[in-house]
Amino acid sequence: MPLRVKVRNAESGATVDMELEGENTIEDIIEGAAGYWEKDAGAYVLRRGKRLLRGQQTVAEAGVLNSDDLELIPDPEGGG
């Protein structure tokens, strides 16, 4: 049965609802959300509470639950 989660854009505060299957990966969510908001090419991570979710994990493995709030955060990579 599909899950429905809310993904928040940490930069703009905007949210989008996503319907997920258990076998979807965290990377799928990251790419789906980044694409939806037409974000620049860059590194992003997804958090659930105080935990950063591992990209390769499936939604089921990461323990994502129906109605969860997730947040898409840019992962700063500059410094030069």
């Binding site: 990251i30 860059g42 990209g55 840019p74 992962d75 700063p76």
Partner: peptide
């Protein structure tokens, strides 16, 4: 790492815990 007004500090203390690569995904 920085990007404008955002930044990040990752502390890796081997042999305990995850490393930097553990926290990366396809977007990286």
């Amino acid at each position: 790492g920085t990007n404008g007004f955002a930044g990040r500090v990752h502390v890796v203390l081997p042999p305990e815990g995850p490393c930097l690569q553990c926290g990366m995904n396809r977007s990286h």
